[in-house]
């Protein structure tokens, strides 16, 4: 049954994790993302969908691409967008997160986009303010728009990711991206594989509905897509991984290794890349294999779709005159 056959309003007043979404929600978001994806390629990018609404991007972690992506998305939808980032936030002056949230709420924004290094921060902000909140990454927990954009990219590439064999390789333990991607892949019926050294796998990983590998060559066998995760610099110092060269030798994605995967297997990376750490430089630049720039493009469209749904609902639910 298609969506046209009955009325369904996007029911959420926040986006904390992809686990909150059902297949119909995702269908709505992907349809709207596809719309905005086309609009973004035209010279007439600015629209007034969210005109009159205020969007605050509250970033407690350094970010370039995600912040820019959310800022562009809000502006192209006609919202007024304000960025607060760590360098100029009051937390540096000792303010608690609760006070920051209440202070911002008093300025009556309609949408808050939040990134924070503590798992649960986005839920906390939403509970404190009641304002529509988009989680732009909270600790090691969740990064739902990344999960949406990765699957939107794969869906555009394959038509349907159902039954496709998708491998996620890298630092799964510390990755909110991996958790969000796995949630989406499960929902859309992909066959999921995870590959990492045991020190970079969470202890509950056997309940993720994925097949676990330590050997990358084995993991790549028959894959249709590989998502490589960023290995953060502080993980390379010997507590969990002996060295960069050992990591690259066993878990770095290379053109030679890709021969174990299907001939048309594609490569994704959430960025920013460490060249020759998690991915061979020449492979990242291989236009036939790499969907990395497509992911960036999809990111703006997907975030527009999310902000649009939450913004329209916020406007509809606002008390007149308040």
């Amino acid at each position: 049954m298609g969506r046209a056959d009955f009325t369904y309003d996007f029911p959420h007043d926040r986006l904390i994790t992809v686990d909150d979404l059902n297949p119909l929600d995702i269908q709505i978001l992907f349809e709207r993302a596809e719309h905005w994806h086309g609009v973004n390629q035209s010279p007439d990018k600015k629209h007034d969908t969210l005109k009159g609404l205020t969007q605050i991007n509250l970033f407690f972690e350094p970010s370039t691409r995600t912040l820019a992506s959310f800022e562009l998305a809000g502006k192209r939808l006609g919202a007024d967008v304000v960025n607060f980032s760590t360098s100029n936030s009051s937390t540096k002056k000792g303010e608690t997160l609760a006070d920051t949230a209440r202070t911002l709420a008093a300025m009556h924004p309609d949408l808050i986009v939040v990134r924070h290094n503590a798992s649960g921060a986005a839920t906390f902000i939403h509970n404190e303010t009641g304002i529509a909140t988009v989680n732009a990454g909270d600790g090691m927990h969740s990064h739902p728009t990344q999960g949406l954009l990765d699957l939107f990219t794969l869906t555009r590439h394959f038509g349907d990711v159902g039954g496709k064999r998708v491998l996620i390789v890298g630092d799964i333990l510390h990755s909110r991206v991996a958790r969000s991607d796995v949630g989406m892949l499960n929902l859309l019926g992909a066959e999921i594989r995870l590959c990492a050294p045991p020190t970079l796998l969470p202890t509950d990983v056997d309940r993720w509905g994925a097949e676990i590998f330590h050997d990358l060559d084995d993991a790549l066998d028959g894959c249709d897509a590989v998502i490589t995760l960023r290995l953060q610099k502080e993980r390379m110092s010997g507590a969990l991984i002996p060295s960069v060269r050992e990591y690259f030798h066993f878990w770095g994605l290379t053109t030679r290794r890709m021969e174990f995967a299907n001939a048309d297997c594609v490569v994704l990376h959430p960025g920013p890349m460490n060249r020759n750490v998690e991915i061979e430089s020449t492979l990242a630049d291989n236009a036939e294999r790499s969907l990395i720039l497509e992911q960036v493009e999809a990111g703006v469209a997907v975030r527009m779709a999310v902000l649009e749904q939450l913004g329209l609902r916020a406007r509809k639910n606002a008390r007149p005159g308040s």
């Binding site: 110092s237 010997g238 507590a239 002996p242 060295s243 050992e246 030798h249």
Partner: peptide, 17 residues
Amino acid sequence: TRNLGGETLSEIGLMAT
């Protein structure tokens, strides 16, 4: 571990290889 110091993993995989 490096220097048997018990703090930093040595390159166990590459040594096995």
